[in-house]
Design a protein around this nucleic acid. Sequence first.
DNA 1: ACGAAATTGTTGACAACTCACCTATTCGCT
DNA 2: AGCGAATAGGTGAGTTGTCAACAATTTCGT
Lengths: 154, 154
Amino acid sequence: MQETPRWLDPEQKTAWDSFIRMQEKLIGRLSRRVQTDSKMSAADYIVLVKLTEAGGRLRFLELANLVEWEKSRMSHQVTRMTKRGLVAKEECLDDGRGAFIIATPAGYAAIEAAAPLHVEHVRRLFIDALTPEELSTLAQISQRVLDHMEKQPD
Amino acid sequence: MQETPRWLDPEQKTAWDSFIRMQEKLIGRLSRRVQTDSKMSAADYIVLVKLTEAGGRLRFLELANLVEWEKSRMSHQVTRMTKRGLVAKEECLDDGRGAFIIATPAGYAAIEAAAPLHVEHVRRLFIDALTPEELSTLAQISQRVLDHMEKQPD
DNA sequence: ACGAAATTGTTGACAACTCACCTATTCGCT
DNA sequence: AGCGAATAGGTGAGTTGTCAACAATTTCGT
């Protein structure tokens, strides 16, 4: 006894398809860009952005929450970034389990070199495609979807 | 002699941030969903969708183009899916270099089982968050960004 | 008809992500 | 004080993605 599935109607399907295509192409191009012009991965980039925005020193889980990654992913990432000299770990005196993640001078240098280029590409590929009204509409729509997802179970 | 970078203005930045957050959360939830309720990866899913939509038999590169992946990625993916029994390779008579990728019966079964659930989640997490007008606006905006990117170099 | 160039697809090394499980510490309750 | 639960973080195995180089055809110009 199976119901016939409720497929998306044509408008819904083309909306979904073009959203997915756009998002994939855009993210793909931007992350390849970060990679080639800064020699960092997109992951390195975003971690350094959040870390330096927050003063260059954060508890491990605070950083993970800011970037909205699960701790395991962040843990591996921090390990790799430590090897690359972009961040360092510092033990936490108040809490024997804890760790602080610190942006090293090399980390600051890397993000300061990369950020203007990245912003330029965001502008060139995305912002410039849209009018201010469209951009603001997209912001609202994104926020709507985010709010909606909060209320939904997994 | 370095110019001061042109950062995004506050509206642009919040628009960009919420778009990125939305897109990451949405894609993340959907692909975890596909994974847990169908035991396939999101990659398996999309490949099977495109392949079966196209009649269940495509030249390797046609498939790669449909999914918009580079051939190397597709090659690895096809290898894995072949191991899992979802697709099979068939040699191409006209072109000694070529290969056809075929959706196996197990592949059809898998996609037919997975698709209704997936669509349900797309609807629940995304479509239902928006009015038809918003959805149509988003489709236009996405298309605009896509068209714009076409014209831009990497 | 022949050699250069393009096309088709593969491979191997490596980086990144996920998932489940693990350790060490701290908290909270009695 | 002491014990179970919660919290902070790490680890290893397995999967997936990327990049560069590769082999095997086929195409095309002359």
